[in-house]
């Protein structure tokens, strides 16, 4: 990982695209920090896994995607949901277990999904997503849509058989699939430097006959560029890619995690590596976007999150009538 700003230009991204990317990252950050605060009050049921610090990955990848494309996510899925366009207010309501939530309160933080947006769900099973993405990529290929499938998974899932099987199958079937290994250093409380036997997760790509790329996960532009190459190749029939995105998560594995397994690497990351800070410096320094414009986004996002929390708190919970519905389409 490097703390220096990349030297290359912001590429072909327009000011509007840059603002969109910033808004997405900023929304994820504020959403997660707010959930962190609200969870501490005890009002949010269950447990939540926060994505703060990792925003550049979801945003950098998903900014290339459209409705033809599907993604699968992880237990740390809020960022992927937001980046793929899931409604933020419905997400917050879902986290509060409300009837107005993305899944009517039946899924919760770990299962937020919006299939109409190609978001196949956060996933409570580590390694649950990659096989599904082989399927969405297969569907896109057979339907000739030019769509791709993107599986986000963590360093923990990189050791799961499902993930390794999926890398192989995607290569064998030459699928338009992108596997994004988000290596935040720890699978729960176990360091990836210990649990991943290879030096890098991306090194494993060679074993499956596909390109493997390592990217600085704090750098939106690096992720954006690497993802862009992989997605373009996939759309053109060039097959799958494994991208390893390296960074640090700002919060514990779950809310309440005392994080005694790691030194305080978060303070340094927040101070020196943070994707939002670097994005701001980069785009304002180059003159593409002004500070004022970014500040406006900040205040708009803050208002959105405030409204999302207020509405979620006010929303009704599911009722007895909802308990046994939606198990089957018909039964």
């Amino acid at each position: 990982m490097t703390g220096t700003l990349p030297t290359q230009a912001t590429g072909e991204l327009s000011a509007e695209s840059l603002l969109d990317a910033y808004r997405t990252m900023r929304t994820i950050r504020m959403f997660e920090e707010r959930v962190h605060d609200e969870f501490a009050t005890g009002e949010i049921p269950g447990f939540v896994h926060l994505y703060a610090g990792e925003e550049a990955s979801a945003t950098g990848v998903c900014s290339h995607l459209d409705d033809r494309d599907a993604i699968a996510s992880t237990h740390r899925g809020h960022g992927h949901c937001i980046a793929k366009g899931v409604d933020v207010k419905a997400m917050m309501a879902e986290i509060y277990g409300k009837r107005t939530g993305s899944c009517q309160g039946k899924g919760g933080s770990m299962h937020i999904a919006d299939l109409s947006k190609g978001m196949l769900g956060a996933n409570g099973i580590v390694g649950g997503g990659p096989p599904l993405i082989c399927g969405t990529a297969l569907a896109a290929k057979q339907q000739g849509t030019g769509g791709v499938g993107v599986a986000f998974f963590g360093d923990g899932a990189s050791n799961q058989g499902t993930t390794l099987e999926s890398l192989n199958l995607a290569s064998v079937w030459n699928l338009p699939a992108i596997f994004v290994a988000e290596n935040n250093g720890y699978a729960e409380a176990t360091a990836s430097t210990w649990s991943v036997a290879s030096d890098n997760i991306a090194d494993r790509a060679a074993g499956f006959g596909m390109p493997g790329v390592i990217v600085d996960g704090f750098d939106f532009f690096a992720v954006h560029e690497a993802a862009g190459e992989a997605i373009t190749r996939a759309r053109e029939g060039g097959g799958p890619t494994l991208i390893e995105v390296k960074f640090t998560r700002y919060f514990g594995h779950f809310e309440g995690d005392q994080q005694t397994y790691r030194a305080d690497e978060v303070a340094n990351a927040r101070e020196n590596l943070d994707c939002l800070k670097r994005f701001r410096e980069r785009v304002t320094g180059g003159g593409e976007v002004t500070d004022e414009a970014l500040d406006t986004v900040d205040s708009e996002v803050a208002a959105l999150i405030d409204a999302a929390v207020a509405e979620a708190k006010d929303a009704p919970k599911p009722s007895q009538a909802d308990l046994e519905t939606d198990v089957y389409v018909s039964y």
Partner: peptide, 12 residues
């Protein structure tokens, strides 16, 4: 992988 792929394809 392939049972999962069948399931994923079914969602699409």
């Amino acid at each position: 992988a392939f049972v999962g792929a069948a399931i994923g394809a079914a969602t699409r």
